[in-house]
Write a protein that binds this DNA or RNA. Structure first.
Lengths: 377, 377
DNA sequence: CTGTTAGCGCATTCAC
DNA sequence: GTGAATGCGCTAACAG
């Protein structure tokens, strides 16, 4: 690490400033000197000192991507897409390169805050937060506050698959001309969001089940206090309620609140559901992974899918189409969403009006859902 | 971002040095002043400037984790485990906190080098490289060289699931007392590796198939030029060769070299295999994901698993036990391996002798493999 | 086009 | 136990 800019300058017989200029590439330098400098860099195996550079320029090339579970392809796909948008800066050189890194919060709000602090320390160029947020007053406020500070400091903030920030406390009366609008996302802080239509997708999914003739539909929900969990559940109940008040009334009894978005939540949830409602004809899962756990449990109980019980997931992860039977689910264009978030983070795409873009989701009807056995029409 | 150490100092009525000291926590400071400083920090919402701090201290808290595919749980599990080892530094404060970040190379050697350069720029405290390496003379040498420079600069390097570095070129005659040992991993460069026994696991898996009575065993290999691919294939053929020369001779014909470690490689590979050897009784996959693709293809061809064809995977990812039928595979203790790599990266665990630790793998026999149909003993 | 001059914000000697 | 001074390595005005 000993070799510095000055060493290169000496070696090339130029000033440090010149070396800096050829390296950043954003300044005219004579071809001959450039070559000389580059050769010196090569010979000395010089590598820029990031901290020093960041300090002097007051900018960083770090872009953070926060995910709730790095072992979950849902986040992997988004993160990969975000990352794929970095790399090719407008200029050709190594200059505009961003270092996109993903930080695994494990869904813990504390960890989320810790990472945000770290990123703020590093003066990150941008940070992308993916996936549902924990619905906790205190932490929510803390995260929002930190995000606003980051944004104020010039860090671009993008929310992907996470609902927009609520307006800051005490913001409403603060000279806003339109008065107490109150519940609309505040603009102007520069925080942009790419939202998933969890509610709408979930609703369509349940409508599909209803239209097939299902009336006893179980629901294995995701982690408590997660925005995603809530939105999907709301969509489900919206569909139920639109069909009949009776269905909506029994919804709570047909819902089990699983733990994480993992296989065992589905497995255990399905068992519990079967205990409560032995003649269940369909189960909706918080997501595809949970759905697979549900399938396993049903099979272990001697139930056939979809003959005895229909099962549906959410997300349409790659493995869902290959499951047996292939899973009916709601496709979220995770890659597109992530790519867009990446472009937004780089300021390469103009933010949507209002700062919120909602990506469309699509119902994927496959083999795991069918007309319930009792139905003969 | 405007608020600096000096601001806090002024506010607290102390010198910048004192503020620095209470923040780093590694220096005696009077209780009263400490409280005063901390309050000022709080009031001003001060956050350390990472670059400045790193520059002055010549150290960084960045730890990089390189993965080949961030959407693959194989890497997610390892990365998550590595990350879980960071966070609780020896001291209590926010001082010893490391920022563990994962970088997605997509399996591309260029990208790998780019990330290593970035990490070197940032003077990363450590970098963990996970998963198989691409077997390419040139890139291998380039990566090795860069890793050695990083290590020389004080960055800890840990290889996890990747074979140890070959000795540096021209190193053999360079005053090494024991002369041209040549093909043993060079120690002394401080690069430590946690290796997976891919060869041994693969061998045991194929032995299992042979012992069941299978003789026409197809193999859908992983990406070409990957160390992992090669090692697993070698283990497979080792088992074949030990059983009979005939099996080994036809091995190449029974092997299809799929593309990536994904579902479609398995699907397409199985189809090709069936074309070549219609009366196949078993197929071994490069990994579990590929195995699932194989299962899908076989089902689409009207084959039953395991009655008509047995299928086996590798890695034992969480979903494998839930597949239907449950997948016979080789379990790699990914979490343990990652955790160990993390500890090694932090210097919290003493490196194994020789710098290489090999983690044991375990054959998991489940429902996807059975005695072939023709066999009646 | 290139060299010179100042800091960037902090950690760390030294003194006190 | 605390303050004052110095420099980490680089970039960004300025001159020339």
């Amino acid at each position: 690490m000993a070799v510095t800019l000055a060493d290169v300058a000496t070696r090339a017989g130029v000033s440090a400033a010149t070396v800096s200029r050829v390296l950043s590439g954003n300044y005219p330098v004579a071809g001959a000197t450039r070559t000389r400098v580059l050769r010196a860099v090569e010979e000395l195996q010089y590598v820029v000192n990031g901290p020093a550079s960041a300090l002097a320029a007051a900018t960083s090339d770090l872009v953070g991507i926060l995910v709730n579970d790095i072992a979950d392809p849902f986040f992997g796909i988004i993160a990969g897409a975000v990352q794929s948008e970095m790399g090719e800066g407008p200029a050709g050189g190594t200059g505009g390169q961003k270092l996109a890194v993903v930080c695994n919060t494990g869904g813990s709000p504390e960890s989320e805050l810790t990472y945000l602090t770290h990123l703020q320390r590093q003066r990150a160029a941008a940070v992308v937060l993916t996936g549902g947020a924990v619905e906790d007053e205190e932490h929510g406020a803390a995260v929002a506050a930190r995000l606003r500070r980051l944004a104020a400091g010039g860090t671009r903030i993008v929310l992907c698959g996470r609902p927009p920030l609520a307006p800051a406390a005490g913001e409403e009366g603060k000279g806003s001309p339109e008065g107490g609008a109150g519940d609309e996302p505040d603009e102007g802080d520069g925080i942009v969001t790419v939202a998933f239509d969890n509610r709408g997708g979930s609703r369509r999914l349940t409508e599909h089940l209803l239209s097939l003739g299902h009336r006893r539909i179980g629901y294995v929900a995701g982690p408590a206090h997660s925005t995603t969990t809530r939105h999907r559940l709301e969509g489900h109940r919206l569909a139920l309620g639109e069909h009949s008040a009776g269905l909506l009334a029994q919804a709570e009894h047909f819902t089990v609140h699983g733990g994480d978005y993992d296989r065992s939540s589905g497995y255990d949830g399905a068992l519990e559901l079967l205990r409560r409602v032995p003649d269940l004809t369909a189960v909706v899962a918080a997501n595809d992974t949970v759905a697979l756990g549900i399938c396993a449990a049903l099979r272990d109980q001697g139930k056939h899918i979809p003959e005895d019980v229909s099962v549906a997931g959410f997300d349409d992860l790659p493995f869902s189409a290959d499951a047996s039977p292939a899973l009916t689910t709601v496709r979220i264009p995770l890659h597109d969403a992530g790519a867009r978030a990446g472009r937004l983070a780089l300021g390469r795409e103009t933010p949507p009006p209002g700062g919120v873009a909602t990506v469309r989701v699509e119902l994927m009807v496959r083999a795991s859902t069918a007309v319930p056995a009792g139905r003969t029409d």
